[in-house]
Amino acid sequence: MQVEKKRSPLFSAFLNLLSPGLGFLYLNRIALAIAAIAFMPVVFFLGGRSGWILSPKGFLVVSVVFVGGWLGMAAWAYLIARKQKSIKLGPFQRGYIYIGFTIIVGVSLTLVTAFRGVLFGYDVFRMPSASMEATLLVGDDFISNTQAFSHRVPRRGEVVVFRDPRQSDIKYVQRVIGLPGEKITFRDGRVFANGILVPDSYIEQKNNTGLHQTTSEFEVGTDSYFLLGDNRDNSADSRYWGSIPAKYLYGSVEFIYFSFGEGGVRWERIGRRMKD
């Protein structure tokens, strides 16, 4: 004999906010619980693979859809519980089931998020150092297009994320200066590729005083790139590591979606795109 019991509308809503689908499981709506679990990955998969999330406006739209959907599921659970006087309880309405469900969903979503660069075609990072000032400041959160170099080659001047060839789980962000096969030289704080001056309007003079200038000549390897930080006086880059093989390039940097510094939120930086 199935037990019927009144479900709390507020608790149902709270559970859906706590863990996607948990409120529906509490209401014995298994299909809705499964749909709720799939909601977040589907939204970000569509947003990433379509390229929407790679623009400031598209990022805002995807974020609104995600937050709206999450709140909407909480409201839906509330309305279901409020409308029905009692709900038939099934084998899944047990405390240990709720706990297990929450753990499994949490672990699954964490794993999906960890591999979003491969699954969704984008990734997000927070700038940890001053090596790219003033293009990227410490505390800037930016989004990277991990599909970018699957159908084109990097451009000179493009800001990219790349894996450390010595330790591939570590990623850095720098600017492409030298292209495959070029000879890179430094003179009076300026960079030359095959003897031609590389434009550097993005460099602030205070960050390029010649503290680490070098007169050495670097030859960029085949299918490799010479990368530099915009803060030339405070950047470990291809001057020390050598050129970076293309296979270690992870994605292009698209724009800053959030920024927080010592003075609080830096609103003027939100939505700022990278310049080649």
Rank of each mutant, 00 (worst) to 15 (best):
I87H: 11
F39G: 00
G90K: 10
S86F: 00
T110M: 14
A75S: 03
I104R: 08
V42K: 04
F66P: 00
F92N: 01
S129E: 13
F125H: 11
L89Q: 14
G48Q: 01
W52G: 01
L137G: 03
F149I: 05
T146C: 07
W52L: 15
G117K: 08
R82Q: 13
A81N: 09
Q84L: 05
D140K: 02
P128W: 14
A130V: 13
G117W: 02
V61H: 01
A134E: 13
K85P: 02
F142Y: 15
G117H: 10
L111T: 11
Q93R: 14
V43H: 02
S144A: 15
L46E: 06
M132H: 12
I87V: 14
F125M: 09
I104D: 11
L111N: 13
L46N: 04
L60D: 06
T135M: 03
A75F: 13
A74E: 06
T146P: 10
F115A: 15
L46R: 03
G139F: 10
S131L: 11
G117I: 10
V124K: 13
G47C: 03
V118I: 13
R126F: 12
F66L: 10
E133K: 11
F120W: 15
A75P: 00
M73N: 08
G117R: 09
N145K: 07
I103K: 05
L79Q: 12
F44H: 07
Q84E: 13
W76L: 10
L109Y: 04
T102R: 00
K85M: 04
M40I: 11
L137H: 12
I143C: 06
T113N: 14
F45H: 03
E133D: 09
W52E: 00
V65Y: 08
R94W: 07
V105P: 12
G95D: 03
A77D: 11
G100S: 01
G51R: 09
Y98E: 10
L79G: 01
M127K: 06
F101R: 10
F45C: 02
I104L: 15
G100R: 13
G47Q: 08
L89R: 12
G100D: 03
Y96R: 12
L136S: 05
L71W: 09
P128G: 08
M127P: 02
P91I: 06
V65M: 11
F66V: 02
F59C: 03
V43M: 09
A36M: 04
I99P: 08
V107H: 07
Q93N: 15
L60W: 06
P41V: 05
Y78G: 02
M40T: 14
M127C: 12
G139Y: 06
G69P: 06
I143H: 05
Q147V: 01
G95A: 12
V64I: 13
S55L: 01
Y122S: 03
V64Q: 03
F92V: 09
T110G: 15
R82I: 00
M127Q: 15
I53T: 02
